[in-house]
Simulated scan of single mutants.
Amino acid sequence: MEESILIGKVYMDCPLCDKKHDVEERKRLTSITIKGDKVFYEERFFCCVNVDEEENEFETGAMANENLMNARNAYRVLHGLLTSEEIVGIRESYGLSQVDLARLLGWGEATISRYESKAIQDEAYDTMLRMIKDNPLVALELLKKNEDKFSETKRKYVRSKIVDKLDSYGKEYLTRQALEAEYANFDKINDFNGYIMLDTDKIEAMVSYIAEGISNLFKVKLMKMLWYADALSFKRRGVSMTGMVYRHESMGALPIGHYSLMNLENLNVREEESNNYDLMLHVYPSEGMDYSILTDEDRTILDDVIKKFKNYKAKDIIEYMHREIAYTKTKAGEIIPFSLAKEIRNF
């Protein structure tokens, strides 16, 4: 058990010394065994300085519930299950009550309440929750299947919430489906995808992050910078960042599905006219983009790529890429393996 850290002090009636005084609020990393697995979680508690150290800890009922929830969520994370907060997030994204969501899924009315507060869902229930999280069309189908569980007024209300979700999320879902469909032949990790499966969330965050670092960013330059970010990641860590597969093209490395990529709804891409009256795709940072998916290592790699190519024009970075071993040792139309990509020149 680790040493505790002082969070603050709370003036209260202390149940240990029966006096009203400032009681220390502390936290520490501790462990518990749940279903045979030892998990580590953050525990909060109070300390009374007026009694012996061995007996000076206590917790309120609210604290005990929070600590137990942290332990259960640690178990969920260990087993790849949705946490209670994530389940709440799914329900709130549809604007539904706990009972409404349970009825929509065809479950007992108290099921969602239990999963949000204390019980740990099994894998089958977790899969159902993930399905409606990722695809509002599934929620709409479930409503049709379980419509008898709702009054007509409530059914119309729930349907309106699902349609709202489709309006705000549906376009992004469809564009993601288009991109992911182009990777149907790359459903296993290998040398072509850098031993990582396609990660659309990370791609969107990377594109916006690069656009924040480079104000005059257009599609051609972006594609090369994504390849260099993946290649540099593979060189340093043995895996790429995005899981994208790149082909040898006349303008350098181009990811499979690059047209679909540029259509992702969460990207801020605008068609603009060049000095030659050609239409070009200008990439801007996406307002409100969540960068938490990028690790510190990811950001360091992206920062290095941005620093290297920030002042390069598109033709400059293309010419630079043409001299890479990964390009000279592959032919037009061939996939560029990451075993060659890791041979990029030093930054």
Rank of each mutant, 00 (worst) to 15 (best):
Y246V: 06
Y246H: 02
H248D: 06
H248L: 00
H248N: 07
S250A: 14
S250M: 15
G252M: 05
G252Y: 03
A253C: 13
L254R: 11
I256F: 04
I256W: 03
G257E: 09
G257K: 07
H258E: 15
H258P: 04
H258I: 01
S260K: 01
M262F: 13
M262Q: 08
N263W: 10
N263Q: 15
L264D: 12
E265W: 08
N266D: 14
N266R: 15
L267V: 00
N268T: 07
V269A: 03
R270C: 09
R270P: 00
E271C: 08
E272K: 04
E272Q: 11
E272I: 09
N275D: 14
N276V: 06
N276D: 15
Y277M: 07
Y277D: 12
Y277H: 14
D278P: 01
L279W: 11
M280P: 06
L281K: 06
L281E: 14
H282T: 05
V283S: 03
V283A: 04
V283T: 00
V283R: 02
P285K: 12
S286T: 15
S286N: 01
S286V: 09
M289W: 07
S292D: 14
S292P: 10
S292N: 09
L294M: 03
L294R: 01
T295D: 07
T295H: 08
D296N: 14
D296P: 01
D298W: 10
D298L: 06
R299S: 03
T300F: 14
L302T: 04
D303V: 09
D304N: 15
D304K: 14
I306Y: 06
K307C: 11
F309Y: 09
F309G: 00
F309P: 05
Y312V: 00
K315D: 13
D316F: 11
I317P: 05
I317Q: 05
Y320M: 04
Y320W: 12
M321C: 10
H322F: 01
H322T: 01
R323D: 15
R323K: 13
E324A: 10
E324M: 06
I325H: 11
A326Q: 02
A326F: 04
T328F: 08
